[in-house]
Each structure stands twice: as C-alpha cells, then as structure tokens.
C-alpha cells in the first residue's frame, strides 16, 4: 500500500541531472569514468546518468551490470534462493574510477557485497557510490558520494523506486508494511 510519494517524475529527473553534474565536477570530466549498476534498477539509473553525461560532456561512459547474489552475506538465511542473473561488465575496470549506482541505500550490505565483487574483477583506481535515495539505517560504515534525496524512514517501511523501463512510470514512493 502506497503511503506517500517522495519524488515525482520531474523531481526524479532533476535529481539525476544534478548527480550527473556533481560527478563531472568532482572527477574533472568523464574521461576515466565507468558506470557499474547494481541489478536491476541500479543499472537503469546508471544508463540514464551515462546518457546525461554524454549530453553534457560529450563523453560516452561505459555501463556495466553487477549481480551481487554470489557475494551476499545472507545466502542460506533466506527461505528462497535468490536467482543469479549474472554480471556483465564488458570492459576493464583496472585503473578506472568506478561509479557504483544503486537505487536505494539502506543497511549498506548490498554495497559491501558490490565492493567485494568489483574488487574481484580488477583493481579500480577509485570507487564512488551514487544512489537515488538514502533512507538511513546503515549497518556498515558506508557513505554515498552522490545522493538524489535523503529520506528519513522507519525500518518497517519500504521504499520503491519505480522506473519507466520496468514499472511504466517514474516516481519514488514509500510503501507501508503489510499487515500481519
């Protein structure tokens, strides 16, 4: 059940545009950048960021897909086996600045897994983290470099990032916990 809308389509657009500018500014351009999105919506967001950077800067930043299933620390704790969809990063990350992209930053455990996975694939010069929503409740010492929106939430709520490519609409909502 949707409890509240956090970002509408226009706000989501603005957030991504702002992050794109911040990335360029902080890294002095896009030359040594690569994007790696976390499956599934992180990849879509990474593609959108890459499009914006291409529009602003003219640089085509490659986008890779990271599946962190094999690096999760909760395998076997869950009753259902997560499905492995695979990692697809068809470019070297060695010596690059990797912008890791995810939709929602919560406990930080996914990002921990993603960092391990990335480092197994090569030794990047630097890893930065971009997220659309930071909802707090961190369980690990992880901090994002780029945030679309900071959103105080209760632990029991969930935050849903809906994107046109997957959900037919662009917006971010808070969903109330299911009863029972």
């Amino acid at each position: 059940m949707i409890k509240a809308q956090v970002l509408d389509e226009a706000a989501l657009e603005r957030a991504l545009t702002r992050i794109s500018h911040e990335i360029l500014e902080r890294n002095g351009g896009a030359a040594a950048l690569v994007f790696v999105g976390l499956r599934t919506r992180g990849v879509t967001l990474a593609q959108r960021l890459a499009e914006r950077i291409a529009a602003i800067d003219g640089t085509k930043v490659p986008v890779g897909t990271l599946d962190i299933t094999l690096y999760r620390d909760d395998l076997g704790l869950k009753t259902d086996q997560p499905v492995v969809r695979g990692t697809d990063i068809p470019f070297p990350i060695k010596g690059k600045t990797v912008i890791l992209v995810d939709d929602v930053l919560f406990t930080g455990r996914s990002i921990r897994a993603a960092l391990d996975a990335l480092i197994d694939l090569g030794r990047p010069k630097m890893i930065q983290l971009a997220v659309l929503i930071d909802r707090g409740h961190r369980e690990l010492p992880i901090r994002p470099d780029y945030v679309g929106k900071n959103l105080p939430t209760s632990r029991r709520e969930s935050v849903a990032v809906r994107l046109k490519e997957h959900d037919g609409e662009d917006r971010v909502v808070i969903e109330a916990p299911e009863e029972g």
């Binding site: 299933t69 094999l70 690096y71 499905v83 492995v84 969809r85 695979g86 197994d120």
Partner: peptide, 20 residues
C-alpha cells in the same frame, strides 16, 4: 540452466573465485 549461464562468466575472470 539459467543459473549456470549466469555463472559461466566466472570462468573467464582473471581471479576465478567468488565467495558464495
């Protein structure tokens, strides 16, 4: 089969190991 197809990429890595 799908899972295997996803995992095959590991065999092409320089460091052929995941901590799963």
């Amino acid at each position: 089969i799908d899972t295997a197809a996803s995992l095959r990429e590991i065999g092409g890595r320089e460091i052929k190991k995941v901590p799963t």
